Simulated assay, not measured.
Amino acid sequence: MRGTPRTRPGRLRGDRGVSSLELAGYLPVLLLIAMAALQLGLVGYGANQAGTAARAAARAASQHGDGAAAGTAAVSSWLDPAVSAPTGPETTTARVTVHVPSVIPLLGDGWDVVREATMPTDRLSADD
Results as ranks from 00 to 15, higher is better:
4 T>C: 13
4 T>A: 13
4 T>S: 14
6 R>F: 10
7 T>P: 00
8 R>M: 12
10 G>R: 07
10 G>W: 06
13 R>K: 12
16 R>S: 15
17 G>V: 07
17 G>P: 00
19 S>P: 01
19 S>I: 09
20 S>Y: 07
20 S>K: 06
21 L>H: 00
21 L>Y: 03
22 E>Q: 06
22 E>T: 03
23 L>H: 04
25 G>H: 05
27 L>K: 00
27 L>A: 15
28 P>Q: 02
30 L>Y: 01
30 L>V: 08
31 L>W: 03
31 L>D: 02
32 L>P: 05
32 L>Y: 01
33 I>Q: 00
33 I>T: 10
34 A>H: 01
34 A>S: 13
35 M>E: 08
36 A>E: 02
37 A>L: 11
37 A>K: 05
37 A>G: 13
38 L>P: 02
38 L>N: 09
38 L>M: 14
39 Q>E: 11
39 Q>M: 02
40 L>R: 03
42 L>R: 02
42 L>C: 02
42 L>E: 02
42 L>A: 11
46 G>E: 05
47 A>S: 11
47 A>T: 08
47 A>M: 07
48 N>R: 12
48 N>I: 06
50 A>D: 02
50 A>E: 05
51 G>D: 12
51 G>M: 08
51 G>S: 12
52 T>Q: 15
52 T>G: 15
54 A>R: 07
56 A>Y: 03
56 A>Q: 13
57 A>W: 02
57 A>E: 01
58 A>Q: 03
59 R>M: 10
59 R>D: 11
61 A>T: 05
61 A>K: 03
61 A>V: 03
63 Q>W: 12
63 Q>L: 15
64 H>C: 10
64 H>T: 04
65 G>M: 05
65 G>I: 03
67 G>W: 01
67 G>F: 01
68 A>N: 06
68 A>M: 01
69 A>C: 08
71 G>F: 06
71 G>I: 03
71 G>N: 04
71 G>W: 01
72 T>V: 10
73 A>I: 10
73 A>V: 09
73 A>K: 11
73 A>R: 12
76 S>G: 15
76 S>H: 14
77 S>D: 15
77 S>C: 14
78 W>R: 15
79 L>R: 02
80 D>W: 09
80 D>P: 05
82 A>S: 14
82 A>W: 07
83 V>E: 00
83 V>F: 09
85 A>F: 05
86 P>A: 04
88 G>Y: 08
88 G>A: 09
89 P>M: 05
89 P>G: 02
91 T>N: 14
91 T>M: 12
92 T>N: 05
93 T>I: 04
96 V>I: 01
96 V>H: 01
98 V>G: 03
98 V>Y: 00
100 V>K: 00
100 V>N: 04
101 P>Q: 08
101 P>S: 09
102 S>K: 05
102 S>G: 14
103 V>P: 04
103 V>H: 06
104 I>F: 07
104 I>T: 12
105 P>W: 06
105 P>R: 07
105 P>H: 04
105 P>E: 04
105 P>V: 03
108 G>S: 11
108 G>K: 09
109 D>Y: 10
112 D>A: 15
113 V>A: 12
114 V>T: 14
115 R>L: 13
115 R>S: 14
116 E>S: 11
117 A>F: 03
117 A>H: 06
118 T>N: 03
119 M>Y: 08
119 M>D: 04
119 M>L: 14
119 M>F: 11
120 P>C: 07
120 P>I: 08
121 T>S: 09
121 T>N: 10
122 D>T: 00
